[in-house]
Simulated scan of single mutants.
Amino acid sequence: MHTTKRWNIDILLSEETEGDAARTWCEAGIDSADGSGLRGHGMARKHPADSDVPEIGDELAVSRALADLSRQLRQVAAEDIGDQTGTPWRP
């Protein structure tokens, strides 16, 4: 038996500039069929001396949000394994 599933991750980016400095925030979210969901967060800062390349801030903020989301998903899996086996699992 072969099963295919698709999980969609929603990415929201927000940028704030103040003079030569900038901050980019990201929220990466995944929702499950039962209505629960997880949200990962990431942030990147542009130093005033850095070149103005907004894509770099986006990439860093998204990668950090996805890493946070990944950590949370791994924790949920660890809890589910513990519930199923009765033995704690450490990710």
Rank of each mutant, 00 (worst) to 15 (best):
M43K: 06
D83G: 12
N8E: 15
E15S: 00
V76M: 11
D80E: 10
A28F: 08
A33D: 07
E15N: 08
T4L: 08
R45Q: 13
G37C: 01
A22K: 00
P91E: 13
S51N: 15
I9K: 03
W89E: 02
Q75F: 00
A21P: 00
G57F: 05
T4Q: 03
R90P: 06
L73P: 08
W25C: 01
G86S: 00
G57A: 01
D20L: 04
W7D: 12
T17I: 04
Q75Y: 04
D34H: 05
A22Q: 01
S70L: 08
I30K: 10
N8P: 09
M43I: 15
R71A: 15
R45S: 15
D31Q: 05
N8R: 15
T85S: 09
S32T: 11
E27C: 05
G29S: 15
T4G: 02
R90E: 14
D20C: 04
H2F: 14
L38E: 06
K46M: 06
H47M: 06
S32P: 00
G29I: 04
A61N: 01
D20E: 15
D52P: 02
G40A: 02
G37R: 08
A78M: 09
I30S: 07
D58I: 00
S14N: 13
S70M: 11
Q72E: 11
S70D: 07
R23L: 09
A61K: 03
I11G: 04
D80H: 13
E27D: 13
P91N: 14
I9G: 06
T17W: 02
G37M: 00
D52L: 00
D83T: 14
G29F: 07
G42M: 10
M1H: 13
H47K: 08
A44C: 14
A44I: 05
M43V: 15
R39N: 07
A67P: 02
T3W: 04
D31L: 08
D83V: 05
H47R: 12
L38Q: 07
W7Q: 13
E16V: 11
M43S: 11
L60N: 09
I81V: 15
G82H: 10
T3P: 04
D20I: 06
A21T: 12
M43Y: 04
G29A: 07
N8V: 14
E18Y: 00
I9F: 06
P54A: 09
D80S: 14
V62N: 03
V53T: 06
D31P: 07
I56D: 10
I56F: 06
R39E: 12
D68G: 04
I30L: 14
D52K: 11
E79M: 09
I81N: 02
R64S: 02
L13Y: 04
A49I: 10
H2Q: 13
D10K: 10
A65K: 10
Q75E: 12
D80N: 14
R45M: 14
A33P: 02
D50N: 15
A65H: 02
H47W: 01
S36D: 08
E15Y: 02
R39L: 15
S32F: 14
R71N: 14
I9N: 02
P48K: 02
R90G: 10
T87L: 11
D31G: 08
I11W: 10
S51I: 01
G40C: 01
T4M: 12
R64A: 08
V62S: 03
G57L: 12
D83W: 04
G40N: 02
R71H: 09
E16K: 07
